[in-house]
Design a protein around this nucleic acid. Structure first.
Length: 221
DNA sequence: ATCCCGAGGG
DNA sequence: CCCTCTGGAT
């Protein structure tokens, strides 16, 4: 995809959704960090279902430490990878208390030192909570970037660096959410809904066979 | 490369 | 049944 196409690509996504936001539910920075940590290989709907029960009971590092691991696991049992996530969240809360006064740190190094927090999660917190122009490459962004030709790469880091160099600066702060939402609802993993895709004119991907739904839409419209 | 690991959709 | 979901640690 050339630079002019990339410009049109994001202008089109912005026109349909001027102020995109995460669909994870949170009311403060700690809740955001916890929700993103829990969202690894899980849907935001599933994470919200659990945090809607957990956060009213415990939404600070101290409260979660006081809760204890077995009860934290009970709240997270409906989320995939819940044992690992419960242990990581518990240790992260202990480290936040020991090293950061119970607050969420603002640097990549400090964030990535927390158990269960890698580059992608750190990038989300830096972007959403602290307004930094980062690009968190998750499963959606990795797929959309490669499939469309926006920023092809073999690893998430390679895609991230390519996106940072290709996305026009004015679109960078919101690009993360536009690409996530586009991947979730249109450029889906199993069956990309190309027949209703607003950015198809600038996309490199061409489906080999037109999906049944596409044919139905063509004959009825 | 492998493990973790439940819910929802097709 | 199979695949996917805002990955991270070993």
């Amino acid at each position: 995809m050339n630079q002019a196409s990339i410009q049109a690509f994001f202008a089109t996504l912005k026109a349909a959704n001027p102020h995109p936001v995460t669909e994870l539910q949170y009311t403060n920075v700690f809740e955001l960090l916890a929700a993103v940590l829990l969202s690894a290989q899980a849907t935001d709907v599933g994470v919200n279902k659990a945090t809607r029960r957990l956060f009213p009971v415990a939404n600070t590092p101290a409260a979660i430490v006081a809760l204890g691991l077995p009860r934290l696991e009970d709240y997270l049992r409906t989320i995939g990878l819940y044992r690992t996530k419960a242990k990581n969240l518990m240790q992260t809360c202990q480290l936040l208390l020991e090293r950061h006064g119970g607050r969420v740190p603002r640097t990549r190094e400090a964030l990535e030192a927390l158990p269960g927090v890698g580059r992608k999660t750190a990038n989300v917190v830096l972007n959403v909570a602290f307004g930094e122009p980062t690009m968190a490459v998750d499963t959606h962004i990795f797929r959309v970037s490669n499939r469309t030709g926006l920023a092809p790469g073999k690893t998430p880091l390679a895609v991230e660096l390519k996106l940072l160099s290709r996305v026009p600066p004015e679109y960078l702060p919101d690009a993360h959410h536009w690409l996530i939402l586009h991947g979730r609802y249109v450029c889906q993993a199993r069956l990309p809904r190309c027949w209703e895709c607003s950015v198809a004119p600038w996309c490199d991907y061409r489906p080999k066979s037109i999906a049944p739904q596409a044919r139905a839409n063509q004959t009825t419209s």
